[in-house]
Design a protein around this nucleic acid. Sequence first.
DNA 1: ACAATACTAGACTATACGGTCTAGTCTAGT
DNA 2: ACTAGACTAGACCGTATAGTCTAGTATTGT
Lengths: 199, 199
Amino acid sequence: MTVADEPACAGMHERLIEAAREVFTSEGYRASMDAIAARAGVAKQTLYNHFPCKADLFGATVCNASTHIAVLLEGEPANLRDSLITFALTFRGRALGDDGLAFFRALTAEGTRFPEMSQTFYASGPARTVARLADFLGRAMEAGKLRRDDAVFAAEMLIGMLLGIEHARRLCQVASPDETEEHRVSRIVDCFLRAFAAN
Amino acid sequence: MTVADEPACAGMHERLIEAAREVFTSEGYRASMDAIAARAGVAKQTLYNHFPCKADLFGATVCNASTHIAVLLEGEPANLRDSLITFALTFRGRALGDDGLAFFRALTAEGTRFPEMSQTFYASGPARTVARLADFLGRAMEAGKLRRDDAVFAAEMLIGMLLGIEHARRLCQVASPDETEEHRVSRIVDCFLRAFAAN
DNA sequence: ACAATACTAGACTATACGGTCTAGTCTAGT
DNA sequence: ACTAGACTAGACCGTATAGTCTAGTATTGT
């Protein structure tokens, strides 16, 4: 317990947010302020010196995490398939990893209580990822490497296939089949490339 | 309040489960037993006469709901595209509707507390839907209407595209674009048919 | 009529938790 | 040395809630 200065003791504020993220991630919003203070190795009052109430701490945590989650895909790489596979692996690692999933769970569970919060998260995470991917695909379409089509729609289909049933499955704590990530991802990307092959 | 005998007063047990479903759906597991009793128009003790504790009531509720959620697709219809579109509309209605979504949220929020419960849900809902769809697609493959491929994989891709980013978006309370369901679904099904067209 | 069973109303207990308060310590800047 | 500001430890308050208990009321089968 009392895991002090883990991320290089980068100031009390960050330390508190980090502890809150860990505890909220594993227990959801029902986690107690005492537990968070203990996790940060800090007195409860210190927590309240930095954040006026629990909701604000949760908000700061979500806000902080939101800035790190978008998966971006830049450049104009020669090999479309390879870049998509690289992107897909990163994306799945982030969206389907234990951490990302637990965070998503904690966030959406409180969706009705804090709607703006989950909306902010969506905008700075998934929505940004889709937008960038759509840009990328749009350029590939113009270069004649993909069929001319609605680039946003294409991006959403790829994201959908990558997340797919697996997102729901893991949210439900069901173990995944033991296909390797690389194998699954390349099947998916190939499926996508068939659907959007240049005509 | 005290909405008695709503679903044809089919016995106290069912009435309690129905009230619990409504309240859990809108407030999650943090809903109070008092609220559920009030919703059922019943004394709290009555609730405890039927269910020994809150967790059991939640379990019964989930279990009951799980039996109704799979979307099945039977038969060998002549027109593949039409049957897929019909299936897709039903499926999206159920999985992306307010009710289904709220229930899913309540369930996955407690995923770490009641893992078996969400696993059961997954098995009797999404997993069954995928399995049946895969059967259907497998038959279409054998009939030469789709490329010969892994039918389960194909089913997962279609489900993924149908749910896609939209599931995450709605879980995050973000309003959806105003494309009609019919239009979106047919775009998706056409995309799927391109990816799995018979060669 | 009687007994058994199920339901009602609501008081009650125990606990957990958000948030406040007090009193005291540690550290830095002057 | 003195002061200001931040941190600590932990008591404390109010409220919400799971679950129990008691006492009384309908209903039903014999």
